[in-house]
Design a protein around this nucleic acid. Structure first.
Lengths: 111, 111
DNA sequence: TCTTTATTTAACAAAAACATGAAATAAAGT
DNA sequence: ACTTTATTTCATGTTTTTGTTAAATAAAGA
């Protein structure tokens, strides 16, 4: 689904709070998730769908409940992206390319 | 500004691509950033503003150009959030709370 | 089977996000 | 001063997101 879907899922404060609670508390039913919020249950249901589609949480049916939990794979995607990004800060990549790109631009305009 | 603003900034595919390019290439002017995209310059300008407000990039004025670069502090926020989350997967926290919460729920409904 | 409990889907309104073209701003070059 | 180059702000339209209430679905209990 792509990393930007994961970011999109966590961009909403309500969804972020849901995920943080699932991380702390483990499995929770849709009803339990909805309870602390002021917004309606259908609204929460939609948020859960967005989180599920992004791969951040997973849903299973247990009796008459839908039980949700945070999903490691969704977080792994983010970890990977962040690690790839971190390489650039740490300099464990070919820095030459960056420097050349900057010089090139500067030369073109400066002379 | 909050972590969900960072997620929101990276949720848009255009913005994500801009950030990834800035990480690879280093400093780029607004015009250079806009060039590879099909969308208009005003649109890119807005995206850059969103990224800046989220703390993911920083802008400086250099001659007649606005030069942008990725900003480590913005990424640090995400690293922190992700590390906090990772604790729950790794189990280096008091797991008792989670188990109790689940048992409690199960007892209440199961009997 | 009728009701209750749990949750989702549907229909729709309001707000936010994203795009565009035109005009404004600002520094640099002539 | 006037023009060019670089970029942003403005006014505006479209699409997406987020929320609401009402109805649909589905399993469990009486």
């Amino acid at each position: 689904m792509g990393i930007h879907a994961v970011f999109g899922a966590l961009a909403d404060p309500t969804r972020l709070a849901i995920v943080e609670r699932l991380l702390r508390t483990g499995d929770l039913t849709a009803g339990e998730i909805a309870a602390p919020f002021e917004i309606s249950k259908p609204a929460i249901s939609r948020h859960l769908k967005v989180l599920e589609e992004a791969g951040v949480v997973e849903r299973r049916v247990e009796r008459q409940f839908r039980v949700f939990r945070a999903r490691p794979e969704g977080f792994a995607q983010m970890e990977d992206w962040l690690e790839k990004s971190r390489e650039f800060w740490n300099g464990s990549f070919d820095r030459l390319e960056r420097i050349l790109a900057q010089e090139e631009r500067r030369d073109a305009k400066d002379e």
